[in-house]
Design a binder for these strands. Sequence first.
DNA 1: GAATCCAGCTTGTATAGGCAAGTTTCAGGC
DNA 2: GCCTGAAACTTGCCTATACAAGCTGGATTC
Lengths: 250, 250
Amino acid sequence: MREPTSSLQGEIRAFVLEKIVGGEWAPGARVPSETELVARFGTSRMTVHHALKALTAEGYLRRVKGLGTFVAPPRAHVLHARLTDVADEITERGGRHRTEVLDHDVRCASSTEAALFQLPPGERLLHARLLHFENDTPLQIEDRLIDPARVPGVEDLDPAAESYFAFLMGKVPYPAGRAVVRAVMPPMETRFLLRMGPEEPALEVERVTRAPDGAVLTVARLTYPGTRYVLSGEIAPPIGRGPDPVGDDE
Amino acid sequence: MREPTSSLQGEIRAFVLEKIVGGEWAPGARVPSETELVARFGTSRMTVHHALKALTAEGYLRRVKGLGTFVAPPRAHVLHARLTDVADEITERGGRHRTEVLDHDVRCASSTEAALFQLPPGERLLHARLLHFENDTPLQIEDRLIDPARVPGVEDLDPAAESYFAFLMGKVPYPAGRAVVRAVMPPMETRFLLRMGPEEPALEVERVTRAPDGAVLTVARLTYPGTRYVLSGEIAPPIGRGPDPVGDDE
DNA sequence: GAATCCAGCTTGTATAGGCAAGTTTCAGGC
DNA sequence: GCCTGAAACTTGCCTATACAAGCTGGATTC
C-alpha cells in the first residue's frame, strides 16, 4: 500500500500507520492526542483530525470522545473474495463463455422457498438452472430463484444472452446479502453435467441477495467442480463502514 | 445500516446514499457538485466535502478534480468472511476447545517451501500439524509452516496452550496476505483423524500471511470436514482502502 | 471519609475563508 | 479552420476559530 506523503494529512497518516503496523504502538495503546500531533507536525487541528478520522474509518484506530485515540484491537482477519459474474471471470482470463439453459420456468413458491423470500406461500417465483461453459468445458451450475415482483423485467430476460448477475447488478447496483461456501458431494446429475470425476467434490457458493430495504431479491446456488475452481481473495483487517463503526462490544 | 441524521454531514450522507442505493442515481451518473449541495443544505462547503469524501472512501462515489463527483460503477461484489481463530470460534458458540499436537518440529525448508517463503533452500522452518476438537469432535486440521527468524519466540510456544493464530496476531497485529478456499477429497489419514464419512469432502482454506514489509511469515492449510463446517460472510460492494482507492483502470 | 463540583483535558462537528490544481468551454487571434 | 488563452467551473487541501459533549482527577464541601 503506497502512502502519499505529498499532503500534510498523508504525512500524519503515514507516521501513525507506520507505528501501528510496525508494532511500535501495540493494540490498545494510546495514540498521541490531536493537540500533541498538532505540536509535532505544526499543522492545524483539523488536518490532524481528518487524518486520524480516516484511519478510524479503516479500522486501525478507535477514538473515544473525552478520552483519546487508541490503536484498535484486531480480533479477526477478513477474507475479501470477489464474487464476479462467471461470464466476466471467464472472458477476463481469455476464455470463451457459453450458457446452456437447463431449466427456466415460473413456479409457485413452496413453503421453504416462501420462507426464504419472506413471502406468502404460492407466490410466483422465477426459477432458472443454467450450465456455464468455459471453452466448452462446464465450469458452473447456477441454480437461481428470483422474485419477479421485485425485479421488473426479469421474466423477459434470455439467460443465454445476458446473465442474471449482470441484469440484477443493473437493477440494484448496491445490494446487501450473505453467502455461504461449502464443500459437498453433489448428486449424480450434477456430476454428469459438470463432467466431474467419480471421487471429485464440488465447491458450492450459496448467496442470498437483498435489496437495500431488506427484501430478498434472489437466491443463487453456484456449484463448481472442486478440481477446476477455487475461491481466492485478499486478507486484511476488518474495515469500518459507515459513520458508526464501533458500538458492538465492551 | 442505520444512518445517523443527527449531524449535518449525516443528513447529506443519507441524502446522497439513498439516491444511490435506491437506484435513482445510476452508476456513472453525475452527483450534484459541492456548491450545489451547499446551496441545497445551507451548510459550509467543508461539511459537504467531508460527507462526499467519506462516501468516496467507502466506494460509493468517485471524484475527479476539475470534473465532478460521480456514482461509482460497482463492478463486483465482495464476500467478507471472517477468518477467526478456531479456538475463539468454538468457545464463542459455547463449545469446548482442545488441541492435539500431531507433529511439531523444526525442519530444513525443501525447495518448494523455500520458494513459498522466498528464502534460500535449507533455511530452518517451524512445522506444526494440529488437530482441533470441538467437544471431543475433531473439527479442523491445522498444517502450518512458520519462519522462526521472522517470528521471534515462536519456537518456545506450546501449540496446545496458545494457538499460533493468537500468537502471530500478537506479534504482527496488522498482517497482509492471500487465502484460497477449495473443496478437496483428503487423503486417508486426514479422513481418519477428522472422523469423516467415506464419501465426505473437505473444505480447505490455505492462507499465506505476510508482514507489512512483504516477507512471508507463515503458511497455513486448514482442513475442515465438509458436512460440519461452512465458510460464511457478508456481501457488500468493494471498499476503498487508503487515500488512493482508484487509479486501477480506464 | 464520602459525595459533589469544576477545571482541564479529550474528540466531534461546523463555519468561513483561502489557494492550488485539474477540466471544460468558448471567445479571440492567426 | 486551427490554435491559444482566459474564464468558469470542479475537487483537494489547509488554516483558524468556535462551540458542544464526554471523561478524568483533584479541590472543595458536607
